[in-house]
Amino acid sequence: MLSFTLRKLLTVAGTMLGIAVLTFVITNIAPGDPARLVAGPNATEDMVETIRSEYGLDRPIVEQFVIYMKDLMTGDFGTSIVSTRPVLDELLRYAPATIELVLVAMLLGIVVGVPLGMLSAVYKDGPIDHVTRILSISGVALPAFWFGILMQLYFSVELGWLPVSGRLPLVARPPDMVTGSLLIDSLISGNFKTFNSALSYIILPAIVLSFPCLASILRVNRAEMIEVLQSDYIVAARAHGISSRRIVAIYALKNALLPTLAMIGLRFGWMLGSTVLVETVFDWPGIGLYAVSSALASDFKPVIGVTLLIGFLFIIANTLVDLAYAWIDPRLRRA
């Protein structure tokens, strides 16, 4: 298991390198002159040239690549034009909010999706199955921004139960930063009032973000459960006198969980991408919102930074899924 983990970590490094190279290539083959974009429409030719040499864009492409890679290695993601602050600092500031949102949404998707999938497999074609079918179809069909606005209108404006947008009320004092997650940090500092408030802010965006993920986890888990429940070893377990409840909850679920896990890994990356929409709707101060505002301002260094960060998080998530796979399935553990 240890060597398996080490091997996986090596692959992570390789993939990261690949992403870095790819991001560089794409930004360079993309049409348009970044120097001119940065300089703005009214800039003179001289200004454009100054910016070009300032950003090193006048050097040969190979040299630019070497500098780019060297900067990345030392954690230098460049400087944002709009805020004139290092991109890395800004990423570190915005990332915790996004990670917190995605993890809460993921948790919601798993905690609700897996049991519902299991139930609808056990009571296949029964009322539960029909209800979950409607739930899962609408989950993949509803666009996040529309669904998000609908939720705001109903739960915030109409009922007034939950705040419309943001992460904390303006007047609230955020807890001391430890992990960057408001929920965890407020618990650490024992400030339950802030915790409740942070929770009320995260509920709506988390639901909106997790809905499609929940739907697909539910469907995959249902399909797998149905197949596993028909397999020979389940028949054997019944014949050996193990109770139905135990068979479903322990024996069958573990087998059905494998493809569901793969789904979770994929959905994680998809969620990180979706934060661009959800964070915009809910004004959630994360990297999605940061990426959108930077892109609109033609501030390209932050966009590269966000791309690399999302790629990195996606790889981490999928590596964890791989490790979980090996942990669950003994056949995958290499000798």
Binding site: D232, Y233, A239, H240, I242, Y251, N255, I328, P330
Partner: peptide, 19 residues
Amino acid sequence: RGVRISMIFQDPMTYLNPL
């Protein structure tokens, strides 16, 4: 089931849970 009447099966690979 399994206590007073028990059963053995055809294909021992598929009748044992692999996990």
